[in-house]
Amino acid sequence: MDNPSHIPPIQPLLNPRQDNTRALVLVLGVIAFLAALSLLFMLSAERLKRSWQSQLTQSATVQLMIETDAARESKIESALSILRTKLPEAQIIQIEKQDSDALLKPWLGNVELPDDLPLPVLISIDLYKDYSLDIQALEDALRADGIIAQLDDHSRWSNQLSRTGQSVKAIAMAVLLLILFAAIAITTFATHASLAAQRDIIRVLVQVGAQDSFIARLFVSQAAQRGFYGALIGALCALLVAIFFILRRRTEDVLLPDLSLAWIDGFWLLVFVAGFTLFCALAAYITATRILRTERRRR
């Protein structure tokens, strides 16, 4: 009172040295690291899938079945002009013979193809923007001109890619959930231990009239703090590992998981840290409230 500005700094009611805070944060950090890594994988797999898919949907291939050699060039010309009028927003070019031969090489082996082999003529369509092709209409238009053509808009590949992407996402999601459950289990266990370790303090708090909610809040904020630090450490480590992978892939062609990073990933990592913290807090709240309630019944 002689020095009213001197108010001793506020001390935490729970004894910070009572239980193995550092070990616990470390374990939570490892768990959060695994979760954050699988989150980054999921995000980059999703991104990869989307970019492939948009490449696929923005392009199509036309196979022209041309039998007679005489009309070959004129038929190709008319096919190209029909396609160009039908699709003014696309780049439409004939795939050169050596290029289309190269496409066949994996199937036919390194043999010289005879010139008179009736190979189909390939025309590639690249749409400048995302818009859906009406395959049937294009085929009909070509057929009206006497050209037998087969259009492939890659939807088969796209669908398969979509399915693969979906299962990759589901697996990553499952891993993420599993890891979050582990975090909940650890926090529950730690809260049990913490309540036991701080029993004397709780007894005093109860004696001076602390409500259960007040006591539970102490353990909730303790768990939230630990969860937050664990999640932060884990997320940062995952980010570092991702950066390391990306740099390695760029310099050497080693067998490393296909990872990419985007700014939006930072946002998702923040969401992850917040969610992880929330899960830990929730687990502590449920545990502390339950224990305090059963203790009271026993008395």
Binding site: P8, I10, Q11, N15, Q18, V208
Partner: peptide, 13 residues
């Protein structure tokens, strides 16, 4: 409470 100062102990209620 062992880890709290005298001030903090007295201020507890």
């Amino acid at each position: 409470i062992d880890h709290l100062s005298v001030f903090e102990n007295v201020a507890l209620p």
